[in-house]
Nucleic acid binder design. Structure first.
Lengths: 124, 124
DNA sequence: TGTTTATTTAAGCAAATGCTAAAATACAAT
DNA sequence: ATTGTATTTTAGCATTTGCTTAAATAAACA
């Protein structure tokens, strides 16, 4: 695999091994977390997630209107979020309402709090 | 823009407008945050960021070794992270060391703490 | 039953992503 | 100056993403 022209005579072998162990140990957590962050890392989906956090539940139509996007486009984002269990649905008559799952509500809450207070530029 | 077949006779206009205002108000924060999360949402880059958090600084070669990836591939990830100011560099002789910027260290810390304790499955 | 309302799904496409392999750059040390 | 070490950059390519448009479901209601 490695076309490794870098021999690193100075490498700290202990450090390298410690890191390798750490990565192996936390591998499942990295997968879980990057999976969620990948979805939250899209501008539109981050807004959707935040709006669901604040409003508890919204339907595709609401989001389409709020975000100024096609219903179809929003629906496809919602499907991704639902497939990976970031959100869940509840039907009320003709309308399907989406809401955050508890898992991801907890996981993303630190960000939502920062967003809520619009403190991005102060925190950093 | 809208091929909107959804008239939403039941829509809560107040709610919609409140959400629109909120999105407009926080627009810059959404951009900033999704920009960072997009990068952290990649499995490889999340590991890199976490390793830099734990080890303070590492070079491409170290990361290539730890992650079992080509130096070139890692370097390209590092460039993205550097371009968007998630990490910064410091040269020491031939070796270029990467480290987290303070902004993103603070922003991502909640996740790193969860990862550090490998508590993903407990938190959720 | 058929029609309206709400929503999803499928096909298609331009743009972005993440990698490999090869070439280029940067600096150190002789 | 020349060589060695560390790293970046480029070109190319397969895959994925996010959208549009059009067609397909799903359930409520006349």
């Amino acid at each position: 695999m490695e076309n490794n022209s870098c021999i690193r005579q100075q490498a700290d072998i202990k450090q390298i091994n410690r890191c390798k162990d750490r990565v192996a140990e936390l591998n499942g957590s990295f997968d879980y977390l990057s999976n969620g962050l990948e979805l939250a890392g899209n501008n539109v989906r981050l807004k959707i997630l935040f709006l669901l956090y604040e409003e508890k539940q919204l339907c595709v139509c609401d989001l389409s209107d709020i975000l100024g996007m096609t219903i179809s486009a929003v629906s496809q984002h919602l499907r991704k979020l639902k497939d990976r269990k970031l959100i869940e649905t509840e039907r009320q008559a003709q309308t399907i309402f989406y809401s955050l799952t508890n898992e991801y509500k907890n996981l993303l809450e630190p960000f939502f709090i920062i967003l809520d207070e619009n403190k991005i530029l102060e925190t950093i």
